[in-house]
């Protein structure tokens, strides 16, 4: 449905987006995942038409949107700071997009009430938005973006401004609401938990390029390179001794305590820095004499400051480009 092709955009002389391309299918939820400052928000604004790319194009069902102004694109955008209109009530905020469509008043009324009902905020209709809590604002912003029935919904770090507990709670709620809407969704975040919890497909941005895309499982099992593995927090990365342009990914739950029965390149000795109980296992933090920190999941409890040996069998490791 949506095709983004070779988007290039620089910021203060440095390239921010360096030829970004990806596609979005009907009803699909994709997460744009990247470190902060990687140009994710700018990419959303370009798709929405709020900013112009220096080169590249955005297509909707094959049609180039270069000359379609933002208000004619029908793309809903939810801002990181929600951008609720402070001079309007909750009701008026949600009704805004319907009013620009010049819908009849009773229809607007019906849709707004239904939207407010779905976020359980009917009683807030006449409150000024400045009195809402962060979580309430987030919900009103989502309701406002969905009310005019956009062709595409884009969310820019919708949970970014909220505290940890609320985030976990709202991630589930959001997943339910996004699935329910049956709309194609682009969801921007820097938080991989959120991304894995919501997305059908992940698009990972680094240095202004798409470095990998795929389902959460694909990415988890086959990270494209060492940076992706590190960014997704998949495990320990140990530099290859022969070829410094490669690294080995050693996943914490694949490691073992003690000496390996067969010969392996991944046998380490070191000092235990920490051993934390994680519910089903312990997480061991080991420092080798080469100052490499290794994480390992084990069911044995260890004491800090002691020497320990750990190993990974070679078939359980992956070699990745740096």
């Amino acid at each position: 449905m949506l095709s983004v092709r070779d988007i290039y955009k620089s910021y203060e002389g440095k390239p921010l987006l360096n030829g970004v391309s990806f596609d979005l299918q009907a009803g699909e939820i994709i997460c744009l995942l990247g470190a902060s400052g990687s140009g994710k928000s700018t990419l959303l604004r370009i798709i929405a038409g709020l900013e112009d790319a220096e080169s590249g194009a955005v297509y909707w069902q094959g049609e180039d949107l270069a000359h379609t102004p933002p208000h004619k694109r029908g793309f809903g955008l939810m801002f990181q700071d929600y951008a609720l209109f402070p001079h309007r009530t909750v009701y008026e905020n949600v009704a805004f997009g319907l009013r620009t469509q010049k819908r009849p008043a009773d229809e607007i009324d019906a849709i707004v009430s239904q939207r407010l009902q779905s976020i359980r905020m009917e009683s807030f209709a006449n409150r000024p938005v400045t009195e809402l809590s962060g979580g309430e604002q987030q919900r009103v912003a989502l309701a406002r973006a969905l009310a005019p029935n956009p062709r595409l919904l884009m969310l820019d770090e919708p949970l970014g401004a909220l505290d940890h507990n609320l985030r976990n709670q709202l991630t589930n709620e959001l997943r339910y609401m996004l699935r329910e809407s049956h709309k194609p969704v682009i969801y921007v975040t820097h938080d991989r938990q959120e991304a894995f919890g919501l997305a059908d497909r992940l698009v990972i941005l680094n240095h202004g390029l798409v470095v990998q895309e795929g389902s959460p499982q694909e990415l988890f099992e086959n990270p494209a390179d060492a940076w992706v593995a590190q960014f997704l927090g998949l495990g320990n990365l140990v530099e290859d001794e022969q070829d410094p342009s490669n690294s080995w990914l050693l996943r914490p739950h694949d490691g073992h305590l003690g000496e390996s029965p067969q010969a392996t390149r991944f046998q380490f000795k070191g000092e235990i820095l920490d051993c934390v109980y994680m519910g089903e296992s312990y997480q061991l933090k080991l420092k080798t004499p080469e100052e490499q920190i290794l994480l390992l999941e084990t069911d044995q409890q260890c004491l800090p400051d002691q020497e320990a040996s750990v190993y990974w069998t070679e078939e359980k490791t992956q070699c990745l480009k740096n």
């Binding site: 709020l50 208000h71 955008l77 700071d81 209109f85 402070p86 805004f96 620009t100 973006a145 005019p148």
Partner: peptide
Amino acid sequence: LNQNLPAAAQSLGASPWKAFKEVTLPL
């Protein structure tokens, strides 16, 4: 002024002039 506000109005279907009239100007 938070520039996301008129931008939000535009993403909700308001023309630049309407976004100015309904959001920027009142604020």
